[in-house]
């Protein structure tokens, strides 16, 4: 069998590509090399580490659920309807994606804080958000919502509305179409978006420390614990950092492009 000539890539491209790969992978190797393996289990199972990990898992699950609850309707409205100002609204809704998380935290503080926009209303209702686990969930939802909306809206647009039109012409009501046609069709995209949101919530730092504070078991999530442990126990910080790296690797494995494109 003779080799067919394909366009191929210019040879010089491989050097910068390899450099780029090394730039991403080397820090990961460095952190693995820095781990104190002999005490690894003790370090990640200490009381404060377990509290931080449990809190992170709990709050990230809650914020992912919240993202699905409000993000799916948002994506549907953005993908399936047209209204004036839609493009601007879409850009604004996606803003937390590129906003520095600290800025997001400040914005949340000025909204839900005691002297914030809704502060008085919340006080009347006797709801206290600052320094509570709810604040952590709000911060995480704020930064991870766009991930779900972006990936689901993409899936909706790619799936198109042919089947929905057919179902509607056969007499299915909008809710039935949504439940039986649209959502099953975009389920992979929805799952991918939810996993991305969860990962982003697990890694949330800036908005949480600005808006929610830091108290063991209440608001001190894994990234905050890592940042604090760095001061007194760098070994524990590195061990916990590795836990977050493993979570990230699992997320990427779950989101393998073939899987997302399926």
């Amino acid at each position: 069998m003779s080799r067919t000539r394909t366009a191929g890539l210019p040879g010089w491209l491989y050097a910068p590509a390899a450099l780029g790969a090394a730039f991403v992978l080397l820090p990961l190797v460095a952190i693995v090399a820095k781990v104190d393996w002999a005490n690894f289990l003790d370090l990640i199972t200490s009381e404060s580490s377990r509290a931080a990990l449990a809190l992170s898992l709990r709050t990230s699950a809650a914020s992912t659920a919240l993202c699905v609850l409000i993000g799916v309707p948002m994506a549907l409205v953005l993908a399936r309807t047209t209204f004036p100002g839609q493009r601007i609204l879409r850009s604004l809704v996606l803003l937390p994606l590129v906003l520095p998380p600290v800025v997001g935290g400040l914005a949340l503080l000025y909204t839900f804080g005691r002297r914030g926009l809704l502060g008085h209303t919340l006080e009347v209702l006797d709801i206290r958000i600052a320094f509570s686990t709810i604040a952590v969930v709000l911060a995480q939802t704020f930064v991870s919502l766009p991930f779900l909306v972006v990936s689901l809206e993409g899936s909706l647009r790619t799936a198109g509305d042919r089947y929905e039109t057919v179902a509607a012409s056969l007499g299915a009501r909008p809710t039935t179409v949504l439940r039986r046609i649209t959502l099953p069709l975009v389920l992979p995209g929805l799952l991918a978006g939810a996993v991305l949101s969860f990962a982003r919530a697990m890694g949330e730092f800036g908005a949480t420390i600005t808006f929610a504070g830091s108290l063991q078991g209440v608001t001190r999530t894994l990234p905050l614990e890592i940042y604090l442990q760095r001061e007194s126990d760098p070994d524990a910080a590195v061990a916990l950092a590795l836990v977050l790296v493993v979570v990230a690797v699992l997320v990427i494995a779950w989101l393998r492009p073939e899987r997302a494109a399926r």
Binding site: P101, P146, F147, E153, G154, A192, F205, G206, A261
Partner: peptide, 25 residues
């Protein structure tokens, strides 16, 4: 078709990287 399907996914991943690297510098 494949590329257009992947595009939003890639965009989201890229954005994820941008957003997460802005931890306390």
């Amino acid at each position: 078709m494949t590329t257009s399907r992947r595009a939003p996914f890639l965009a989201a991943v890229l954005a994820a990287l941008v957003a997460t690297t802005s931890l306390a510098a």
